[in-house]
């Protein structure tokens, strides 16, 4: 959980030897994610559906150009708790909004008559298509960096949605003295070690890292259908909320189940406590 300040020895073996080497180890740093108030915080938290819809639009129009979401299917958008859930269509495959959102996207398929690879509009049963055919293609198009899959991103980073929000809205001009390689961008929230690129005072190495992703969001880049403002911070918030839902689509179900379970256990415990008191009433102990 606390993983600051440990230089990685390349092999697992060396991890054990690292404390013995006695060499100065470089430190990985990153800024603490800024805490945001989310609708899904706390034991009674729920996703804000409209925010998820806006977030999907940000993902679709911006992120999906480089980032896959291999664990997501279009049908997920219309399932219970999803951004486009409609109680009229308990089967999300029937949901017309989901159908049309899927239809906007082309996916690869095989023509069963000829065996040729063809493109066709997606259906709700299809996976979100990945932007690149493979890792090599993804790296080649991104200056060697691999855009990570976003399906679990909100669970796969400390700070979850706060981290995603901070990172996306936190690109900064590199401070004087920081010389980054071309195609790298300074972001205090991205974990990294900038010692090598730093030419200023030795004890003032800037926090954060050099990220291969150019600042993806700009004010007004995505026009929201509900007229919601679309400053960088709004877009970042909404897509962070969407990614949280995508990483944990059963969160609402889990929390409401949990409230019931806790109430049950609490009552059960109280009953057992009184049973205990009654049974032990006449025993000195």
């Amino acid at each position: 959980m606390l993983r600051k300040g440990f230089a990685v020895a390349a092999l697992g073996l060396a991890v054990l030897a690292a404390p013995l080497a006695g060499t100065a180890v470089a430190a990985t740093t990153q800024a603490e994610p800024t805490e945001q108030a989310w609708s899904f915080d706390g034991p009674f938290g729920k996703f804000d559906k409209e925010q998820l819809q806006r977030g999907y639009k940000v993902y679709r129009e911006v992120c999906s150009a480089c980032h896959s979401m291999n664990l997501m299917y279009f049908r997920n958008l219309g399932q219970k708790g999803g951004p486009f859930y409609d109680p009229k269509y308990p089967n999300p495959n029937d949901n017309p909004v989901v159908k049309s959102l899927a239809h906007d996207i082309q996916v690869k398929d095989v023509d069963t008559d000829t065996g040729d690879v063809v493109s066709r509009p997606a259906t709700p049963a299809d996976k979100f298509p990945a932007p690149f055919a493979n890792e090599y293609a993804a790296r080649a198009s991104n200056g060697g960096a691999l855009p990570p899959d976003l399906s679990d991103m909100a669970k796969a980073r400390e700070g979850g949605p706060n981290y995603i929000y901070s990172l996306l809205s936190g690109f900064k001009q590199p401070p004087a003295g920081l010389k980054l390689d071309p195609g790298k961008y300074y972001n205090p929230w991205f974990p990294g070690d900038l010692t090598g690129s730093w030419h200023g005072a030795k004890d003032k190495v800037p926090e954060g890292g050099a990220i291969g992703m150019p600042p993806p969001l700009t004010d007004g880049k995505v026009t929201f259908d509900d007229g919601h403002p679309s400053k960088i911070k709004d877009e970042a918030r909404d897509v962070a909320a969407f990614l949280t839902w995508a990483a944990e689509p059963k969160m609402e179900e889990r929390k409401s189940f949990g409230v019931g379970a806790l109430i049950y256990l609490l009552i059960f415990s109280i009953l057992l406590w009184f049973s205990y008191k009654k049974i032990w009433k006449n025993v000195a102990h």
Binding site: K255, L262, L265, L272, Y276, I279, W280
Partner: peptide, 28 residues
Amino acid sequence: VKDGFAISVFLILYASFVFFMPNVLGDA
């Protein structure tokens, strides 16, 4: 009955993790 009571209280703690912070004990 005494163990039953303790088990029930323990389950409250357990359920709090499962339902409200299922990933805090794991590594992101």
